[in-house]
C-alpha cells in the first residue's frame, strides 16, 4: 500500500477546517499532523479517509468531475457539504477520525478516539491523547479563528490585550466588528 499522500491530506484539511492551504502550511506543522494521524489510526484508515474525500469532491464537481482532474474546478459548496457529511461524517469508521483531524488543527492536540471506535477498529499506543509538538498549541487554528493570541504564548506586545480581536471579515458572517 502506498503511503497516504501529503497533498491529499492538505486538501482534506482545507475542506475540514475552512482555512486555506497557505494558512495550514503556514503553521509549519502539516507534515507532523499527517504523521500523527497515521500513527494514531493506521495507514489503511487514513487512505480510506482520503479516498472518501476525493470521492466527495468528485461528486461536488458534478459532470465536470468526470473528466478526472479536479484542479481548477469550482466545486458546488452545497454539494460538497452534503457529500462530506454523507461519505465521511456519517461514516462510523471515518467520521470520528475526520472530527479528530479538525480538533488536531484547531487545538494542536490529538484527542483519543471514542472507546466505541477503538473497540471496533483497534486501539494504538499513538492514539492516546497527546500534544504533537511544543509548537502545536500556539499554532492552533482556534486562535486565528477568534482573532486572539494563544494565552501564555506567541507574545502579542504589551497592551495589545486592550485592543479588540482582529477577526478576519470572512469569519464575521456579516456582523460588524
Amino acid at each position: 500500500m502506498t503511503a497516504p499522500s501529503f497533498e491529499e491530506f492538505l486538501r482534506l484539511s482545507v475542506d475540514l477546517t475552512a482555512f486555506g492551504e497557505t494558512e495550514l502550511l503556514g503553521t509549519g506543522l502539516a507534515r507532523q499532523y499527517l504523521a500523527k494521524v497515521r500513527a494514531a489510526c493506521g495507514d489503511e484508515i487514513v487512505t480510506a479517509l482520503l479516498d472518501a474525500h476525493r470521492a466527495a469532491r468528485t461528486e461536488a464537481a458534478g459532470d465536470a468531475g468526470d473528466a478526472g482532474s479536479l484542479d481548477g474546478i469550482l466545486l458546488d459548496r452545497v454539494l460538497l457539504d452534503r457529500a462530506l457529511r454523507h461519505r465521511i461524517f456519517s461514516d462510523d469508521r471515518l467520521g470520528p477520525v475526520a472530527r479528530n483531524v479538525i480538533k488536531l488543527w484547531y487545538a494542536g492536540m490529538w484527542y483519543a478516539l471514542p472507546p466505541e471506535w477503538t473497540d471496533r477498529y483497534g486501539a494504538r499506543a499513538a492514539g492516546e491523547a497527546s500534544t504533537v509538538t511544543a509548537a502545536s498549541y500556539q499554532e492552533g487554528l482556534l486562535w486565528r479563528a477568534i482573532g486572539a493570541n494563544p494565552p501564555g504564548a506567541k507574545g502579542p506586545g504589551y497592551g495589545s490585550w486592550a485592543q479588540p480581536p482582529r477577526i478576519e471579515d470572512r469569519y464575521l458572517n456579516g456582523a460588524t466588528k
Partner: peptide, 21 residues
C-alpha cells in the same frame, strides 16, 4: 507601543510565508 504589536503581527506573517513552499 502600537508599533510593537504590529511587529508581532508581522512576525506571524513572516513565519507563515517562510513555511510555505
Amino acid at each position: 507601543q502600537d508599533a510593537v504589536c504590529d511587529m508581532f503581527r508581522l512576525r506571524d506573517g513572516f513565519n507563515q510565508l517562510v513555511r510555505n513552499p
